[in-house]
Design a protein around this nucleic acid. Structure first.
Length: 131
DNA sequence: TCGATGACCTCTA
DNA sequence: ATAGAGGCCATCG
């Protein structure tokens, strides 16, 4: 997906230029953030993966927490499919019953992904299909 | 420089 | 299935 990548870059450019304002751009790791955002943006509809998987696919093995951070600071403007990213074992990481928790489950089911007790069946996790 | 803090992970019991 | 411990790593005050 070459197109998606370049348009993503264009989208990020104005964000970075706003400088002093905290918009959403993280201090230094813009390269890492872009890589993570890029991977997340490529997760196909109806498919899910884990934080660790996203980090690995972005060339940052062991940086699962950074994947989470990337999502937390991601500009809404990017419209990333954040709901397709789950914790280890296909678990929704938000506190059960929280707003985000329900929203994520709702979005997943809307894409035909089975969610039961805050989890997605292991078989549906497509970490390896990222790179 | 340091300790606290996460949308985390894995192993063990 | 659940709980706790320990590990990991960038960010922040």
């Amino acid at each position: 997906m070459r197109r998606a990548r370049s348009s993503l870059r264009q989208l990020l450019e104005p964000l970075r230029r706003q400088g002093r304002r905290r918009v959403a751009a993280a201090p230094q790791e813009n390269a890492a953030l872009q890589a993570l955002w890029d991977v997340i943006a490529r997760i196909p509809r109806g498919s899910v993966c884990t934080y660790g998987g996203v980090a690995r696919a972005a060339g940052l093995p062991g940086h699962a927490r950074q994947a989470a951070y990337a999502l937390r600071v991601a500009p809404a403007q990017l419209h990333l499919p954040w709901h397709r990213v789950l914790g280890a074992g296909g678990r929704i990481v938000f506190p059960a019953g929280s707003r985000s928790f329900r929203e994520q489950a709702r979005r997943l089911r809307a894409e035909g992904v089975a969610v039961r007790a805050g989890r997605v069946p292991h078989a549906q996790i497509a970490d390896d299909a990222l790179g």
